[in-house]
């Protein structure tokens, strides 16, 4: 078994208006940064994964996303898997 770190980004699907993102975008524009657009706000989930290899690690995390971490009705996920631990966890 190897150790991996998974980073999961959960965002609202494009078809669903991201009101938080819209509000932050308006605030950025009022700070005179009109070049910043299409702001989308999501959730970041980080976890360590024990698996035989990176493919199995991804498979496990994909299952976690399907069953719990995201709601496919309204959310999309992006997963990155890296080998080893990242940083110390308390």
């Amino acid at each position: 078994m190897k150790h991996f770190t998974a980073h999961v980004t959960v965002t609202l699907r494009r078809a669903i208006l991201d009101v938080q993102g819209k509000t932050v975008e308006h605030a950025l524009h009022s700070l005179h940064m009109p070049g910043l657009q299409h702001v989308r706000i999501g959730k970041h989930v980080e976890m360590s994964v024990q698996a035989a290899d990176a493919d199995h690690a991804r498979e496990l995390v994909e299952r976690a996303c399907q069953q719990l971490l995201a709601n496919p009705v309204m959310e999309d996920v992006a997963i990155t898997i890296t080998e080893g631990f990242e940083g110390d966890h308390v």
């Binding site: 609202l12 669903i16 208006l17 009101v19 938080q20 509000t23 709601n71 009705v73 309204m74």
Partner: peptide
């Protein structure tokens, strides 16, 4: 009920936050 799949769809943040 929506999360459990007994009803379709989902409930998300109110439009005015």
């Amino acid at each position: 009920l929506c999360e459990a799949g007994l009803l379709p769809g989902a409930l998300t943040r109110n439009h005015n936050l």
